[in-house]
Design a protein around this nucleic acid. Structure first.
Lengths: 337, 337
DNA sequence: CACACTTTTGAAAACGTTTCCATTCCCTAT
DNA sequence: ATAGGGAATGGAAACGTTTTCAAAAGTGTG
């Protein structure tokens, strides 16, 4: 069942059928009607491979996601997919390993699928530095700034990670905490969210003239319950007098709370915990998680908008900051004398 | 940059180049070497659209997932993707709305993408009954049994939902609970996991001659923290003397625990809670969640195996049961006098 | 050296679209 | 009446592969 069959059945030529099926102008009402009748009757659908071959592109947008377990990301992926549904672009989701180089993967995906654009969820600035120039289509980095990279086809949408982290620390300081531990991502590259958040923390400490010993008070870990639990144990070993912890993601915060309790300490009575991300789950935990809420919906919708603009208009890269909101929660309480 | 360019550059014909690129026999070592040299130098990749057009198929497997927030599913999706990586089949992930008809979606996807097979995650038996005959390729239903449907191209892999639920209830009964509430999915179709689990519960009650009033003790809800919280509130209204709750998924259990605590009750001292699924998160909560642990990894690997067998061998449908393991946890405790 | 057989090779025909271009038709303004 | 112009239509050439088929080049064997 091909377009030729439809042409024959309807008494028109393939060109006209193609036009009808693609909503192109210069087709009479009658032709449209008769052709659509046949199409509906037979349930015919264009062969997308032939279509793409001819059009030299997969009219889709690749979404490269680092890790499947990130609950903030699941929401963003879902929202992105929903937003793309109306546009005629297909949403091609690719999960890559957390340790993988997502940009190289994107290069591979582009070579294979020829999407119109690429969205990155959870990217590492350094990988972009090295490989993004090989990505032949516009891209958007979500939850991370590509401002300093200066590629004119790579936009980005993110919260102000540094300031958001600063607010989280400010909150703990305002509650009287002075011995604060940090559970963070790898900060080798200072312009990654992890690095930015860490710098925000340092700024808050400096402003309030609170001593902070990186070696003792900062532990890095991966984005996982188990790994952050282990990291928290190290942190407790390093500073047994810790009274508050800032975990740079909610998932880490949850792992940390588990580890704190396994030491026989209470949250928040003995140790306060603040997370980052604002996943829905946080409000269902006991204690409810104090966290920095990112608006995943806004991140998704702005990113999609930026990418579509870039695809259609060929406009240059835009770097957007979306608002965050610090949400106090039961997990962070005033320091007790 | 096409295969013709490679042919010209290497001094061979397109046929030979095609053979080399597809690892086909009857190519001299020299040809292979010289052609690969050019390919590597230029970074050439076959145009997959042309390839698929010619081969009349997208050598990929569509994975249709109901809902993005299901943490058990995320693990299965990840595992499935990983397993597919080695096989040469692409993993085409499609999230559909929880209220959508996933089988109709699959029909649409097949028409458009022509995958070699379809995997369903979180399917509804009734949807299959009505539309699966239109799916032109083999399928596997994951976490649900298609045994009774009798399609010979639809396999399935699942735990024994009914028995697993029975075990969960048995556990609560053995702890002395008699006034047990159930938080479940919609059970209109009795052969869906939700229905099967419910029937398992009823069997346990009957065996132990424990009264059970469906109207009062059973509340249905969607797979979400918030909705299950609301459902739990209704359940508490219906039976203020409830001492234990079986939530037919961990996510529901988490929502339920929140609602119970918001009433000023404690878990497990006042109300015990048992979940279902065994998501990693459960062990990081306080109290640790008692749950029925499904082996997502096994479900993924068996499903992939079955589907690939069906694609390659054209073998008939297989319905597999994978083991589950009831995991006692702090959230379910002995009834206190 | 001729013969059959196997391996290696390439020309050309698909695959199902889109799109360029040419054609036909009908209307309007001269 | 006739030229000019727009709208509707279709023929045929792409798009970049795979695959069929036939030919050429080796490789033993009698």
């Amino acid at each position: 069942m091909t377009i030729k069959d439809i042409a024959r059945e309807s008494g028109y030529g393939v060109t006209t059928v193609s036009r009808v099926l693609n909503n192109q102008p210069n087709v009479s009402e009658e032709a449209k009607e008769r052709i659509l009748a046949v199409v509906n009757r037979t349930g015919f659908r264009l062969n997308s491979n032939a279509k793409r071959l001819k059009q030299q592109s997969n009219s889709g947008i690749a979404v490269v996601v680092k890790g499947t377990k990130n609950m903030l990301f699941s929401g963003i992926v879902e929202r992105t997919q929903r937003l793309l549904e109306g546009t005629g672009y297909a949403c091609l989701i690719h999960y890559v390993d957390e340790s993988a180089n997502e940009v190289s993967e994107a290069v591979r995906i582009c070579a294979e699928l020829r999407p119109q654009g690429v969205m990155f969820l959870g990217g590492d600035i350094e990988n972009f530095q090295r490989h993004f120039s090989e990505v032949p289509v516009p891209g958007v980095l979500m939850t991370g700034s590509a401002y300093k990279l200066g590629f004119d086809t790579l936009s980005s949408v993110t919260v102000d990670d540094s300031f958001a982290a600063e607010c989280a620390i400010e909150h703990l300081l305002s509650l009287g905490h002075r011995r604060i531990g940090i559970l963070g991502g790898y900060t080798d590259d200072k312009d990654n969210p992890a690095g930015l958040r860490y710098r925000g923390c340092l700024r808050a400490f400096e402003r309030h003239r609170v001593d902070f010993d990186e070696k003792r008070q900062m532990v890095t870990c991966r984005y996982s319950f188990a790994d952050s639990g282990k990291a928290m144990e190290r942190l407790l070993d390093n500073m047994p007098d810790v009274t508050a912890v800032f975990a740079t993601s909610d998932v880490m915060a949850i792992g940390a709370i588990r580890a704190i309790r396994d030491r026989g300490l209470r949250v928040p009575e003995d140790v306060s915990v603040v997370g980052f991300d604002g996943i829905e789950l946080g409000d269902f935990l006991t204690p409810r998680l104090a966290t920095v809420r990112q608006d995943g919906e806004a991140i998704a919708s702005r990113s999609v908008k930026l990418l579509l603009d870039a695809i259609r208009g060929g406009s240059s890269a835009v770097h957007e900051i979306v608002p965050f909101r610090f949400t106090p929660g039961e997990s962070a309480a005033r320091l007790r004398a």
